[in-house]
């Protein structure tokens, strides 16, 4: 049954990469059920993350946000700051898609803090870019400029001319 769980997860990922998002969700939900049965929190975390990603491409941003919140909660439980940062970044982008910019900013700021703690300059640059855009959407140009300047500085440092 543990192997069946892994196979279901792999099937979910294969369908996802083929762009079969509804099929992917069916497999990841079954994978999640087996992970819960075994009390396997790492596998539950992966399933929630995969479910969040698949729902984005079906335009169900509300459901993605719920799955990403579960991912975030489990990443903290598992003390995995890399996944915690990724979950915050996903939540920030999802709330931008939902046009809930205050919430987007809340999560992008959390992502920024973790990226700084981890010394992840690429992540920090992406957080600044996202914050710059979210503040523009809110009409807060002063904060947008602050993050645009940081984004420029980091892009030059890491050699990203784009």
């Amino acid at each position: 049954r543990a192997a069946a769980g892994r196979a279901l997860g792999n099937l979910g990922n294969s369908h996802y990469l083929l762009g079969h998002f509804t099929q992917a969700i069916l497999f990841h939900k079954q994978r999640l059920a087996i992970a819960k049965e075994f009390g396997d929190t790492a596998a539950q975390r992966r399933a929630y993350s995969n479910l969040g990603n698949a729902h984005i491409f079906l335009g169900r941003f509300d459901l993605s946000a719920e799955f990403y919140k579960k991912t975030l909660q489990l990443s903290r439980q598992l003390k995995d700051p890399l996944v915690e940062a990724q979950s915050c970044y996903s939540l920030g982008n999802t709330y931008s898609l939902l046009q809930e910019y205050e919430k987007a900013i809340e999560y992008h700021l959390k992502h920024l803090t973790i990226a700084q703690e981890l010394g992840d300059r690429v992540g920090e640059g992406r957080a600044c870019w996202s914050l710059e855009n979210a503040y523009i959407s809110l009409g807060n140009h002063e904060r947008a400029l602050h993050f645009a300047e940081k984004h420029l500085e980091i892009s030059q440092e890491i050699g990203d001319p784009n």
Binding site: S96, S130, S137
Partner: peptide
Amino acid sequence: VQRMHLIQMDSVQRWMEDLKFMTDCE
């Protein structure tokens, strides 16, 4: 407003492009 929305979307679009190939593997 439309321009703001377009600016908003570029970082999100980039994230979605990366997301297409992102899976949490078993």
